[in-house]
Every structure is written in C-alpha cells, then in structure tokens.
Design a protein around this nucleic acid. Sequence first.
RNA 1: GGCGCAUUCGUCUAGCGGCCUAGGACACAUCCCUCUCAAGGAUGAGAUCACGGGUUCGAAUCCCGUAUGCGCUACCA
Length: 489
Amino acid sequence: MAVPVRVRFAPSPTGKVHAGNIHTAIFDYLLARHTGGTFILRIEDTDVGRKEEGAVEHMMEALKWLGLDWDEGPGIGGPYAPYYQSQRLPLYKEAVEKLVAQGDAYYCYCSSERLEAMRKEQEARKQPTGYDRACRDLTPEQRKAKEAEGIKPVVRFKVPLEGHADFHDLIYGDITFEYKNIDDFVMLKSDGYPTYHLANVVDDTAMKITHVIRGEEWISSTPRHLLMYKAFGYTPPVYVHMPMIVGADRAKLSKRRGAISILEYRDMGYLPEALFNFLVLIGWSLDDKTEIMTHQQIVENFSLERMGRVAAAFNQEKLDWMNGVYIRNLNPDELTDRLMPFLEKYLPPEVKRPLDVDYIKQIVPLIKERIITLKDAADYASFFFVDELQYDPAKFVDKKTDTAMALKALKSAEEKLTPLASFDKDQLESALRALAEALGIKAGQLFNSLRVAITASDATPPIFETMAALGKERCLKRIQSAISILEKN
RNA sequence: GGCGCAUUCGUCUAGCGGCCUAGGACACAUCCCUCUCAAGGAUGAGAUCACGGGUUCGAAUCCCGUAUGCGCUACCA
C-alpha cells in the first residue's frame, strides 16, 4: 500500500460557503475516509481585502452540519499547525527569498496603474495578456533606485521562456501547457501576503498533502504550481480536478450570482444526509441505478475512477424529491426531534410555546409523507395547532356539493358526533360512513365538507386520523364555526 | 484575443468497440389505489449520443477537425 492519503479542503473565507465549495470538500472527505487517510481543513485567508467576518465560523458550521469532520485544522489543531495561512507568513517569505536567491524569482516594482495600462493595450491590440517582464532583469543599481523611491515590490516567479509542463490529472487525464503562454505570476504581494499559488505549494508540501482535490477552474494554474515545486525541489502531489457545479445559467456558482449558502439549505428544512447524498451524485455515481445511499455506503464504495468530468447543474427539484425520501425514511421519533425547532420557529405566534411533544408525535405520522422539507410542516400542519381557522367559504363547494348540502352534512355530522363516547379513527369512520348513507350522499362528499370544516384546507392528512388527533372538543367546535360561517353566506 | 477543459433525454447520470432498436433517476403525462392531498404501483412521452470526417467487419465509446459552452488570462481564490 502506498503512502496514506492526506487531503485538504482549503477555502478562502470571503463569503458564505455554497454548494460549489462544499462539493469539493465532500470529495476530499470521501477520499480520506474511503482510504483511511486524513482530511485537513486549512483556511486560505490571504486576501486581506476580501476577507469576511464570520466566514470561517460559517464554513465550519456547514461542514459539521453535513457530517464532514476534519482531522486537522481550526478548532482541532494538528502536527502542522497553524492552519490559517495568515499565521504562516514567515514561511512564505522564507520560501520566496530562497527562490530569489537561486534566480527563480525576482522583485517587481511595477505599479498597478502601469500594469493595468499595459493590459488594456494588450487587449486593444488583441494580443495575449500577461506581464511584460519589465522587472525581470533589473540590475542591482536599478533595484536600488526603485527601493530608494520607497516602492514596495511584489515577487514574481521567473517562468522559463520555452518548454512545457505536462501533468496527469486523475480525472481529466494528461494535460500540457506551453511555458510561453504563462506569464511571470506574482507569488508574494506587496503587503507581504502570499498569493494562492505560493501559499498552496508551500503549505501542501509542509502539510504533506498527497492529493490536491480542487475545482476544475484550477487546471490552468497547475503548471505554475508545478514550476514552483520544481524550483523548490519538492515532489508535487497527485492532482485531482473536479467538475464544477454550475447554476441554471451554466456559469460557475458564485455568491455574486446568487448561489444559495449551504446553511440556508439547513434553514429551509433540508436534511444534511439528503443534501450530502444529492451532492455526491453530482459528478459521481455508484452504478447505473443506485441513488439513495447511506453515508456509510457512499464512503465504502467511493472511488475516483467513477468521477465524471462534466460541469453539472444543481437540480433543486431532484433535491426536493430526495429530501422527501429521506424524511419518509425517518422514524417518527427522529422526525419529531428534527421537526421541533422548525415548528417552534414557524408556527404562528399565537400557538402556545413550548409545544407539546407528545401531541406532535401523534401528528408526525400523518404528515411525514406529505412534506418535502422540515419547514413545510409548520404551514402544512398549522391547523393542528391554531385555535381560530380562517375559512374560505368557496372551499366547501365543489362539483358535487353546494353550500346547502355542505351545511346539511355538517349539521348532521355535529348531531352524530356529539354523543360519541370514543373519538378514535375506526369509530369515526363507521359513524360517518353510516351517516353519509343515511343522508343519501357519497361518503366522499361528507368527508370533504368535514375536512374543510376541521382544517380549513382541502389538502390534508386522512380525515379520521386528523379528527382523532385533534380530539372531540376541538372538532365539534370547528364544525360549529363552519356552520355559522356557511349560514352567513 | 490567447490558453485549457468539456459536449449522451429539460436536469443529474449509466455507458470505457459488438450485450445500445442507448439503461436509471428527477420533472412531465395517463392510468391504478383512494375521503382530499400526498405516498405507492403501472404505463408513456422524451437523446438522429453537438456536428463533420476518418480508423474498424463493427463506434456513444478510438483519432482528427469544426462548432458551441464553460474556465483561466488580478498584488482574487
């Protein structure tokens, strides 16, 4: 067996984590868990300007929610701490000085104004854009002069003028880039922070990362990283670029384009195991038919060979379906536990808190096949909780039933139900079926009138179970309210 | 403009030269079940495998070209 796998998820804390970010984390996690390797979390906070307050916490919460536990990183520590790049600055400085000393890198004093003007001109002439290497061969005297002006330089890598980089990607196969198409990129910014390229290579080496798993958008940067590995004398990792998740517009997911953050899915009532399963299926498949898989099944069966290469769109409808499947598969107690926070939060304020767990346990079996998110329950089941229903008289009327008939049905039902000693499902059903027969109407007509009277809705769980859960007193009261509403019409 | 990657039903995908008159899932339609709504069951519609050339007895699968899409082209990651 080869060296134990060490992979890292290395987000930059510039915003809320969305499906695209977490998708990569999932595959890092899966490779680590499948091989018994190590999953590392490293925070790439090297962009001081874009850094966002709370982003790291948000991201860690999202990872935990989805069950993507990391073995080394923030909150845990590890042998290669610190895991924040902003705390590793001396390492990058040292690395860069080494490359400058050996002639693989140089200080560049060009102002951003000059660079921008240069780029504009290149674009205008439809020339390939890229740094013109003005500072590549500065003499010591020229450098001294620039330093004397007080210009803080950046450090650029000296890319060979000819030759090519060839590398093998585990998913995309063999890829080649000509050095002549790569410009002298910045490794160290003038504020002393490294760019992604430098920090990545230095840290992946320091942390003994074996497989670099990242989005496909990084393929074009890989030759630069390889160049640095070579200059440093380090052994490069195995590269695994992953297909991206794209939006409905087929463009890369981004906060700017309104990508939904992972924690929003939690708040909308999606189950983490459903979202995990769903996200795994974007870019990976077990076979030609299996879709619903447990976390353990996925970990056990995961393999990079079965990864796809195509950018995939996020299909919310399928997530909805899958979430429904997961909800239906939950046992009632478990579902009750998960539902509680949503009911507490979203049931109308007039419903007395804290909610009655035993009552909710009675209701859960009635609604579990009818909700697709946990949040749905608050809307769908609110009639189980509120005292005053808002009736829409039109709901009592349908093709077969007019107001007069509904009224008659409800009045007879009230009479029939009032003396009932027991209010269980079977009792109700036999009493009401007999009533329908006595009235000479279809059972369905009676039941539907009753349904509207009791729930104010025409889409509800089966009516007898519903009535049994509500209890005799509340049912009769609602029937009376419905009667008075209908009498006014 | 340059470079790179990709291209199978609307969407997610199976397929790694013959098992494909291309399979599954979501969504959609019809039917069954049924007190409504769901769930469940059945059936159906939906892909000339981007296009054009090769290679081969045989190609969705291999090669080349074209088109289209996306990514990168920042002192962002």
